[in-house]
């Protein structure tokens, strides 16, 4: 909920609004550092050893730890459940999303891969290693003041290491009060079908899905700095 109609004291916010903001910021800061248990079929780790290194070295968060073994599942959609900047967010939203996607997906879903200290582009390495046709990275979004449980999805066709962010499509703000898991799964299935037609994702795949309402987020990944 946007912080509108706060009133004002001189040019400042009244005390209650000011302290409510400070409290929300404190919770968001803590959410970045909190850990959560993620469930899936295969566990992988990036080359970032801990949260501090993850924050300072995004390059390591995009690389698989040496010696990572992954099963081959050629032709599949590989789903990666990644902690990103908010492990609790993906832990809360990913199970419902995957359950809602299973009856809708136009491609078979491979083993669900859980990735720790992971950035979006780690999905390229995972998908390439498994021979996937597409990879959907479900990832904890940077905690905001009003949402510390939000998940995003980045869909990449023909994942190989080195894909740019303009080659992905993004669905963001998946959480209670944002986009529902069911709506996000429907959007993901729609994007996947469109990607199969084009053999591509990214800015070339225009989101022309009829909008039943304005409540249908799905953007090209766009600015790199937007990515967790």
């Amino acid at each position: 909920m946007a912080r509108v109609a706060l009133g004002r004291v001189g040019t400042a916010q009244p005390t209650a609004a000011h302290l409510a903001f400070q409290a929300a910021h404190a919770q968001a800061r803590d959410a970045v550092w909190a850990q959560a248990v993620l469930s899936g079929d295969v566990m992988v780790h990036s080359q970032a050893r801990d949260r501090r290194e993850y924050l300072l070295r995004p390059d390591l968060g995009r690389l698989l730890a040496p010696g990572t073994a992954l099963p081959a599942c050629p032709g599949a959609l590989v789903v990666v459940v990644a902690d990103g900047l908010c492990a609790a967010g993906v832990a809360a939203q990913a199970p419902a999303l995957i359950a809602a996607l299973r009856p809708l997906t136009p491609l078979p879903i491979g083993p669900v891969v859980v990735a720790s200290q992971a950035r979006v582009a780690l999905g390229d390495a995972v998908g390439a290693a498994m021979g996937a046709r597409a990879v959907a990275v479900l990832i904890g979004e940077r905690p905001g003041l009003s949402a510390q449980d939000s998940m995003g999805i980045y869909l990449t066709w023909a994942p190989v290491v080195g894909r740019t962010d303009a080659e992905r499509n993004c669905i963001s703000n998946i959480r209670p009060g944002g986009l529902s898991a069911e709506a996000a799964a429907a959007k993901l299935a729609w994007l996947l079908r469109a990607a199969m037609g084009l053999c591509a994702t990214g800015v070339g795949l225009k989101d022309d899905m009829p909008a039943a309402s304005l409540a249908m987020p799905a953007a090209p990944a766009g600015p790199a700095e937007l990515l967790p």
Partner: peptide, 12 residues
């Protein structure tokens, strides 16, 4: 931004 809190982009 309302209250300095961007509820879409999740930054201040």
């Amino acid at each position: 931004v309302p209250g300095a809190d961007d509820v879409m982009l999740a930054y201040q």
